[in-house]
């Protein structure tokens, strides 16, 4: 069997061509799950044969916000909470683009919370990947809108007492057409959901529960990243199609995962074009793409 090439000099990590290698190693802590979601994302891009010339990744601020800076794709790192408005503008001006919003729970559901709700309501054609580590990571472990009750944070040293957001329920109620939740343990499922979202027209939302060993796990005596991954493995229950009102998270309880919502309704641009044609007739000229000259 001497002809078998074990070394395979030309075999490279599938994620490598997507990375700005000069920026590696990245700043994420040991056992942080964000890098794992990036693997899933790049595998999904490869498997769906996505046209990378027509794909943009938009991030907000925070640990997950770094993704836009590390990916060798057209990407933009916006101000805090403003990933969705920026992405909305991109998508409306250049409808042919596939626009991915890659951001954390704090950026998306707190600082950018209103944008999240209204983008879902308007059904803007965005693929939102929400890495949810249940806390504000980069800014020092403060309580986020997603922090489960009783979890200890730097701003709630006696335990969080306010109820957290159930994000799938929130975006479902606001009108998202695709809603799924997985954890960083579910790498193949995450990649599959991303592929499904790429194909979907309208507001798609994938929540990925991810370890923050440095601030969430440590302060809550929940071990390190690997312990979080083992907990996800043991506590996750696949509940495809579950009513999203029932998939809220608790500190140590079951994690409902799966595809909760997959439906179709006209997206914002479709409705807009339809209305303008109706009202203006031939006077209305559809713009396909805005080009800077």
């Amino acid at each position: 069997m001497s002809e078998v090439d074990f070394e395979c000099a030309e075999c490279t990590n599938p994620v490598e061509p997507f990375l700005r290698s000069e920026r590696m190693p990245h700043i994420w802590c040991p056992g942080c799950g964000i890098g794992t979601t990036v693997n899933c994302f790049t595998r999904a891009l490869i498997d769906s044969k996505a046209n990378l010339e027509k794909l943009v990744v938009v991030s907000g601020i925070g640990c997950t916000g770094r993704v836009a800076g590390y990916l060798k794709l057209d990407s933009f790192h916006t101000t805090h909470g403003r990933a969705i408005p920026f992405a909305t503008g991109l998508k409306l001006a250049n409808p042919k683009l596939t626009v991915v919003v890659y951001a954390g729970d704090g950026d998306l559901s707190a600082i950018g919370g209103n944008h999240l709700i209204h983008a879902a309501r308007r059904n803007i054609d965005l693929k939102v990947i929400c890495v949810n580590n249940l806390i504000y990571g980069m800014t020092g472990g403060q309580t986020a809108p997603t922090t489960p009750e009783h979890a200890t944070t730097s701003t709630n040293p006696y335990g969080t007492f306010e109820p957290g957001f159930n994000l799938p329920h929130l975006v479902d109620a606001a009108g998202a057409v695709y809603v799924a939740r997985w954890t960083t343990f579910h790498v193949r499922q995450v990649a599959r959901s991303m592929q499904e979202a790429f194909k979907k027209k309208g507001f798609s939302f994938i929540e990925i529960i991810s370890p923050c060993p440095t601030l969430y796990q440590r302060r809550n005596k929940m071990g390190d990243g690997l312990d979080a991954m083992k907990y996800y493995k043991q506590a996750s229950k696949v509940k495809n199609g579950a009513p999203t009102g029932e998939v809220g998270l608790t500190k140590t309880g079951e994690i409902a995962v799966g595809k909760f919502v997959d439906r179709d309704r006209p997206d914002y641009r479709e409705l807009m074009v339809h209305r303008f044609h109706e009202s203006l007739g031939d006077e209305y000229v559809e713009t396909g793409e805005l080009v800077c000259s």
């Binding site: 990590n13 994620v15 693997n39 490869i46 990378l52 790498v187 990649a191 990243g225």
Partner: peptide
């Protein structure tokens, strides 16, 4: 390549001997 999917630091990947892993295609 499950190790490669999991590794948050892009430090490891697996491949089948005699088979190149699927890669990013340059699309123009």
């Amino acid at each position: 390549d499950l190790c490669g999917m999991y590794c948050p630091d892009f430090a490891i990947f697996g491949y089948k001997v005699g088979e190149k892993p699927a890669q990013k295609e340059a699309v123009h």
